[in-house]
Design a protein around this nucleic acid. Sequence first.
DNA 1: CGGGATCCTTACTGATACTG
DNA 2: CAGTATCAGTAAGGATCCCG
Lengths: 119, 119
Amino acid sequence: MKECEAKDYQQAHKKEMRAVQDSMDVLSGKWKIAILSSICYYNKRRFSDILHDVEGISNKMLSKELKELEINKLVNRSVMDTQPITVQYELTEHGRTLQTIINHLTAWGIEHRKKIIGE
Amino acid sequence: MKECEAKDYQQAHKKEMRAVQDSMDVLSGKWKIAILSSICYYNKRRFSDILHDVEGISNKMLSKELKELEINKLVNRSVMDTQPITVQYELTEHGRTLQTIINHLTAWGIEHRKKIIGE
DNA sequence: CGGGATCCTTACTGATACTG
DNA sequence: CAGTATCAGTAAGGATCCCG
């Protein structure tokens, strides 16, 4: 391989890594995926419902994570005009494109557990 | 939906969430995927090479992350009998099963960047 | 109900230096 | 070369209370 080709090769690789990092920046952390999973499983979900679905999360964390997900346009927040106020969260179209990845992660997680813990 | 069915529904969901969490526990963090990516891109890779590939990582972090990846049986560590000593890392068979997920994350990351930053 | 503000503890990280 | 050790700063996360 010529030097310039090696360089291109490495450049391509770095680009890929940046892309994966971008994804992980959005998705990693203790709660994000669980929250997304809860919302998309039920289609629409209220704050307190998610709080209940995701075991162990505090309201502070949930509030923070939902904000970040909203900034990244993965979820939509809509205040319902009820008494008292309720807030609905749902996945955006962009958020729904994560479905495939979440499914793969689910499948892989099950296999992984078998391999590591179950032996 | 009867109550018992609703319960099953929720139980199934919790199981899925745990699986995804298991995956994320292994993969999330600032460096793991970049390290895996570096190793599998070159097939076999030495400590100092990875240190160079993954921009910004410190040797301490790399050492720690590699240890965790080894514990999770995603990479194999082999000490080469050279002078001075070199250490080769490569993906295990189990580690290679992550390829699909990494590819998806790459593709999604590119789309996400377009959507969020590039607008 | 859906959060925000505060305080506090721990986990994560980086920089630097050192060893076999 | 491939790590370990130490120190110190930052950020993540939990608990609790408060507000419209």
